[in-house]
């Protein structure tokens, strides 16, 4: 990351990660998760947003034995230990996919898109996946 993106003189910045892709069809979801875990070392104010197909990253009961890929969904439950505690899920994206917060494997805050738009405006840095 560039110096400009990281903290200057110890100030904490607001970092948002936008996740919009389903987990196994492309590498975006796993890459995002790895960047979040590595980035956690910088102890910034991190928020994760799950929009569109990104909500599928968090579904309970993923079993990947049959497709020869690693099931990385349990790792979302470790985020809390990395002090990444702000997980926001689009209410519209969940509803459009027939899901509710009960179908997700971590505690999240379900938020309307209009509200997420405002939350993104308040960020210092937005990273998209």
């Amino acid at each position: 990351m560039s110096d400009e993106m990281m903290d200057e003189g110890g100030t904490i910045k607001k970092f948002a990660y936008i996740n919009r892709k389903a987990p196994y069809g492309t590498i975006y979801a796993l890459e995002s998760l790895e960047v979040v875990l590595i980035g956690a070392a910088f102890e910034q104010d991190v928020s994760l947003f799950f929009l569109d197909d990104g909500v599928f990253q968090l579904t309970k009961g993923q079993k990947t034995d049959g497709i020869g890929m690693k099931n990385f969904s349990p790792t979302y439950r470790a985020l809390e230990m990395y002090d990444v505690e702000k997980l926001y899920v689009s209410e519209e994206a969940l509803a459009a996919r027939g899901l509710t917060a009960d179908d997700l494997l971590v505690d999240v805050e379900v938020v309307a898109d209009s509200e997420i738009a405002g939350m993104l405006d308040e960020q210092d840095v937005v990273l998209s996946f």
Binding site: N71, F72, M81
Partner: peptide, 15 residues
């Protein structure tokens, strides 16, 4: 086994 990652040192010490 539980989280499918090796923890960062900071997280490991805390845990």
């Amino acid at each position: 086994d539980e989280y499918q990652i090796a923890p960062a040192v900071r997280v490991l010490t805390k845990a």
